[in-house]
Amino acid sequence: MDFLQALGHKTLSRFASLGRATRMLLGALLSMPNFKKGTPLLIKQLYMVGHQSLLIIMVSGLFIGMVLALQGYTVLVGYGAEDSLGPLVALSLLRELGPVVTALLFAGRAGSALTAEIGLMKATEQLSSLEMMAIDPLKRVVAPRFWAGFISMPLLALIFSAVAIIGAHLVGVDWLGVDSGSFWSIMQSQVSFQQDILNGMIKSFVFALIVTWIALYKGYDCVPTSEGISKATTETVVHSSLAVLGFDFLLTAVMFSS
């Protein structure tokens, strides 16, 4: 009986948590944006969230592209199909690895930082203080961070894919000797703009929504102690990574299964 009670309790508190998260997001987004005051805040957050993640995204992209080329080459060369290295790398990046790996890295780099920052603002009563100054912290603190994450991640995913393809070219063409012409031309004949690039971007926007939302909610809802913040930060990375992988399966099933 205790077990059932605990299970029910846990389920109900999950629902309550989802409800609070939705209310937070709606509270932050459902309002007339004030461009004069909002734009500087957004730019600052784009810097913190987007620009600060550039380095890790580009370096990871380069290495993942290089590894893909190396692994793909060793398999393809067995069938004498090493010319298909281009589409292999490009398709796996644009459809899957670009959006997914970017989202995972973003959760670790920017998501955890967002959670910690907002958690700390809560613990040091800065959020309460804003509220007592008659300024809605949802609009002032949460909204610009959300938009920054939502805009940054698809851009980061595009940069990731582009850099990774360059990395694959570096290894495949310059090192392993795949013909540069066939690398690009077969890639172009196989990759379609709508099917691959646009679908990849749609994925990326969905992941951006998920990761930023989870990160902001975990920070906003954390127990305002140092212990609570560190727990919330861990939860952000774990929950958003799992959510990204889960939604990736769903989206892939919808987009590419027919």
Partner: peptide, 19 residues
Amino acid sequence: LYEARTKMSMLFQSGALFT
């Protein structure tokens, strides 16, 4: 409420300065 809050202010224990 927001109107009323502009007439009251609160000094928090930690100061709550924006870091």
